[in-house]
């Protein structure tokens, strides 16, 4: 069992390494993508600088907390899009029969598919996340907690994408639905929780679980509480298990395709 896990990790890391090598084929594009993502994220902070010059508290968040929220949002996005980029095109992969290559290999199908490419610009998000953290707090404990939370957040975001993507096993044209669902996870993640009320807030702890990926981590890093930490770990495990179960249930409906394709 241990050997199986070890071999799976080896192949996954090799796959990510090869994905990174592909992105690095063009050095200029690779570096530009990362730098532009950093600048893109930084430009959004400007609007918060202006807003906080008018008001000290927005939706229960101080400026420092908003920076931290951005740190978590960028870090979470970075983890999921760098390591599991292909999960965001899972619908297309299923519809065009590109799962075949992974099914005939003696490794975990889902992991093989979603780790078969990386997104260079997501490295910019990851770096940006840590910059935001260091602006707010420099300590080993906050660094470790931040790292743990962005890994959990990345897994939550990836799991949600697996669930949306897996709908393609049962329905046609689900790409747009999956894109919208994934975008919602990103779009709402950078606003203070307090500005949302009622149903919308409930959504953040159910269908669009940014509450567990971003809001609770901000609270825990600000004022440590073990229940918050356990809630994030628990929900991450639960959503991941759900996503895996749905994917493998759907796989039995997989109909492949004879479209010509290349692994690029």
């Amino acid at each position: 069992m241990l050997t199986v896990v070890k071999n799976q990790i080896k192949v996954t890391l090799l796959s990510i390494k090869y994905g990174l090598m592909r992105q690095m084929l063009n050095k200029t594009t690779f570096i530009t993508n990362i730098i532009f993502m950093l600048l893109n994220n930084a430009s959004f902070i400007l609007q918060w600088v202006i807003l906080y010059s008018l008001k000290d508290n927005i939706g229960g968040y101080t400026f420092k907390q908003v920076l931290l929220l951005w740190g978590f949002a960028a870090g979470t996005y970075g983890v999921s899009h760098f390591f599991f980029k292909r999960v965001f095109s899972l619908s297309d992969i299923i519809n065009t029969g590109k799962l075949d290559a992974s099914i005939i290999q003696p490794k975990n199908i889902l992991l093989s598919v979603i780790t078969s490419d990386v997104e260079a610009s997501a490295l910019g998000d990851l770096i940006y996340g840590y910059i935001m953290l260091f602006i707010c707090d420099i300590s080993i404990s906050s660094f470790l907690l931040f790292t743990l939370f962005i890994i959990c957040g990345g897994i939550i975001m990836t799991s949600i994408a697996i669930i949306y993507g897996s709908l393609a096993f049962w329905f046609n044209n689900t790409e747009m639905l999956a894109d919208t669902g994934n975008s919602l996870m990103v779009n709402f993640a950078t606003y203070p929780e307090g500005i949302f009320k009622g149903v919308v807030k409930t959504l953040f702890y159910t269908l669009i679980p940014i509450g567990f990926a971003n809001y609770i981590p901000v609270q825990v890093l600000n004022d440590f509480n073990v229940f918050g930490l356990l809630a994030v770990l628990g929900v991450t495990t639960l959503i991941l298990c759900m996503a895996i179960a749905i994917f493998y249930k759907g796989l039995k409906n997989y109909s492949s395709s004879n479209l010509m394709s290349a692994r690029i």
């Binding site: 090869y18 090598m21 592909r22 084929l25 029969g97 590109k98 075949d100 290559a101 004879n258 479209l259 010509m260 394709s261 290349a262 692994r263 690029i264």
Partner: peptide, 10 residues
């Protein structure tokens, strides 16, 4: 024959 399994950039 119609589907590649090799990584093209490697």
């Amino acid at each position: 024959g119609q589907k590649e399994q090799l990584w093209m950039h490697l």
